[in-house]
Design a protein around this nucleic acid. Structure first.
Lengths: 157, 157
DNA sequence: GGTTGACCTTCCTGTGACTGGAACCCTTAT
DNA sequence: ATAAGGGTTCCAGTCACAGGAAGGTCAACC
């Protein structure tokens, strides 16, 4: 099976599959003409990777998960630990976003949104008064990443 | 005022300030020895930028906000629109993360986490049965970004 | 046999918002 | 004279790919 068919099968772009091979996540065979040749096992791995990525696991986490998946003597505790760590990062990220949402939500509500220049949003951003902690607080180098939608930024100390 | 003092004042790393100058967000003056020289107005802009970034606005949004901030004839409606668009992205991102959290949370709960190899998490990731939509659904290229904690990844079509 | 068009290959660049580090200059104190 | 602690520029790396160029391969059709 060639790459595009495998891509359709796994629900991943061909580009992504080539990338996964490049970083050693998969090792599809090669046909005589140099084309990648995907076997059942490769397709399973790709599907596995796609799902793990869609749950927000980083590539390195995926690598670890794949290794555990292939290790019949694994301890489910190792998998669980990994997942719990990831869950904690997700929770932290959500908390961070909710702070932004709350702060910005209040400001938006307070803004008339008409043709006049007065704007509580800009006022808050430029306010030189005290009592302004960093607007949204955030943890440290938290969660690795995925594609699509990103949103955060932590405040500097 | 030199860069490190300005950095402390604005709560941003000096590296970031140099970067902001490079991309044209600020234009500090230069002393005779070539050192950047930050005036009050520069400090205000930096503080403004730091706060906007901490609310998750992208650099380009920050550029627009800064322009609005400096335009005394701005319409608050323009600011509000920008903020509302950002709020929508935050909400979308939160929804995406919550889906991940829910899915992964269930799997973690179901996992014994002991020395045995049986693991519902791996089972779900590798399950070849039907009825498995992409584990977490997500919108498209949503939110720009900030630093620190990232988490998402959307599913491919 | 020639040509189209779809598919495959590799390689290079770009993304966002920085961070780290190298190599070097300036200033002040010892 | 030298050492420490600023400052400067420039280059590379991050993460997980996406876009695109240049070229090889394959099946079909005329």
């Amino acid at each position: 099976m060639n790459i595009n068919e495998a891509a359709a099968h796994a629900g991943l772009p061909a580009k992504t599959i080539r990338y996964y091979e490049e970083i050693g996540l998969i090792r599809p065979g090669r046909a005589a003409n140099g084309y990648r040749s995907f076997a059942e096992a490769d397709l399973h791995k790709l599907t596995f990777l796609g799902r793990a990525r869609s749950l927000g696991f980083s590539i390195e986490d995926c690598r670890a998960l794949l290794a555990l998946y292939e290790d019949r003597a694994r301890a489910s505790g190792d998998v669980k630990r990994l997942a719990e760590r990831h869950l904690a990062q997700i929770a932290a990220k959500i908390a961070e976003l909710r702070e932004m949402q709350a702060t910005l939500g209040h400001l938006v509500e307070a803004c008339a949104g008409d043709a006049r220049p007065d704007c509580p949003i800009l006022a808050r951003l430029s306010d030189s008064a005290e009592g302004q902690a960093t607007l949204s607080k955030a943890s440290s180098p938290v969660l690795p990443s995925t594609s699509s939608s990103r949103v955060t930024r932590s405040s500097r100390a």
